[in-house]
Design a protein around this nucleic acid. Structure first.
Lengths: 273, 273
DNA sequence: GAATCACAGTGGTCTGACCACATTATACCC
DNA sequence: GGGTATAATGTGGTCAGACCACTGTGATTC
């Protein structure tokens, strides 16, 4: 299969990078010598399974929600052992393409697409993602999403958003529930942006965020403010005012972050940085 | 963290292409009652492996490039079968945390972080990602990256970028090589933005892009134009002109897309709306 | 000294059995 | 008949141990 034109060596250009740490593994003593890149490709057989599924998906014979044949059967059909098949299944499950349920079967995922959500934290820990970097990324994406939604959202989206806003106000005294509707609002907003790729990325980030967040209890005042902001953002979207939607979203997120920061550290963060 | 100013407009170039389908999974009412999410969680034992590795990583006992113990040994230590261990290993490899090399061992990844790159295409096919959506996402992220880099890049980054620009001009007659340096430029730019989260997302997208692109041969003129643009972008970054860097990047990407569109379909796409 | 080869270490695959979970069918009791 | 246990079935999860395939290395040979 026509290998990529990796001219040898050229790949390590970024070695110049600042990362003063993790530079140790660079000394040739160890690992790769030239440019093998793209390792972790999962063994031949596992990949064969992936390819098989991909073909079916691309041919439209397998759609979100569909059930795969039982492992034993599928293994027989592909002429590989069940172990190898499971390796492939595991790969697809890990990347969120498949949804495996013990005692039931394997299904093509039909939830909002997410990239490697489960190990986002791990990857983050590995490369030293800082909270402020996560936040900055979210700020950039989500405000962009709001702007796009202002330009593209349809009636259905706006109604769904309105519904969530309503529930937001209705659950001011039940933080757990509030959080769910908060999350829904942002998820619908992502859908309303009309760009599922962007939405998927956002979803990935959001999940990592909320995983942390649902440990802290929110303050009543912050919740009311947040609900109010959602309302305003929705209004801007309805009026198709992209700039305003973006600005409001930025403000909302910043405020929300500061609120969380308080709950965690007991004090307001120096806002400026 | 001082976010950079935003230049409105220029972003909605592609609003025309708003597609009409893909709205089905909008109602969040569906499956989860409150907030269970996170299906496809890989069985207990596999997750135990992940947790184990995570602990080691977070405790700093395992750093990028380090080698894991042999499977047989590790399985014994965790008191699980080798099969289950391998399931966990596979999961980590699939999400890009681990790098397994047949006959050698498993290593903590030390390449630029990427999310589920391998099955990006599959996920895309599954949820019907359109080329223009991919492109729009790239446009948003990359121009933002350029702006950030203008504000934050360090000398090392600028030098590395300059090096790539030079090689870009030097390889105008060797498309394959040109492409590598092109890719490097954008990768270094991502690093220079100072936000590894954003960089990781970008890397994921880029990979998916180039995977397609290296099939088409570029036209000489387009390549020269591209090289010229890279040079200009670098100049803007050096002058710490965030707005200009962003604008140039947007223009560069748009032009680049059109060029590709020509090669693929043999005609210029209706440029505007 | 350099090329070759054998070996040991490690991941990849196979087999077939058994366990655990979910769903469905059946039996039973009221 | 209706509802509730209970059994049977289907399916993924785990296990054990053997063997295959790839890599790196050090001994052998010339």
């Amino acid at each position: 299969m026509a290998l990529l034109p990796w001219t040898p060596g050229s790949l390590f250009v970024m070695d110049v990078m600042l990362n003063t740490k993790q530079m140790k593994s660079m000394k040739p003593s160890n690992s790769q010598k030239t440019a093998d890149r793209q390792t972790h490709l999962e063994s031949q057989l596992a990949m064969q399974v992936v390819k098989h599924i991909r073909r079916l998906v691309e041919a439209g014979k397998l759609k979100p929600g569909d059930k795969l044949p039982p492992e034993r059967e599928l293994a027989r059909k592909l002429k590989i052992s069940r172990a190898s098949l499971r390796s492939g299944i595991g790969y697809l499950a890990a990347t969120g393409v498949l949804n495996v349920r013990h005692g039931v079967g394997a299904f093509i995922a039909d939830d909002p697409p997410v990239f490697a959500s489960s190990s986002f934290n791990l990857i983050g820990a590995l490369h030293g993602f800082q909270p402020w970097q996560m936040f900055e990324t979210r700020l950039i994406l989500e405000s962009q999403l709001a702007a796009l939604a202002a330009g593209r959202s349809r009636k259905e989206h706006q109604l769904a958003l309105a519904g969530e806003v309503e529930k937001l106000f209705a659950s001011l005294d039940r933080p757990a529930e509030f959080l769910v509707h908060d999350m829904n609002f942002h998820r619908i907003l992502a859908q309303a942006s009309g760009n599922p790729v962007l939405a998927a990325i956002m979803e990935t980030l959001t999940l990592a965020f909320y995983r942390e967040r649902n440990k802290t209890v929110e303050h009543a005042k912050d919740m009311r403010d947040a609900a109010e902001m959602h309302k305003l953002i929705l209004k801007a979207i309805r009026m198709r005012d992209a700039v305003k939607a973006r600005t409001l979203m930025e403000r909302h997120l910043t405020a929300s972050m500061e609120a969380q920061s308080v709950e965690k550290h007991g004090r307001r963060k120096p806002s400026g940085r």
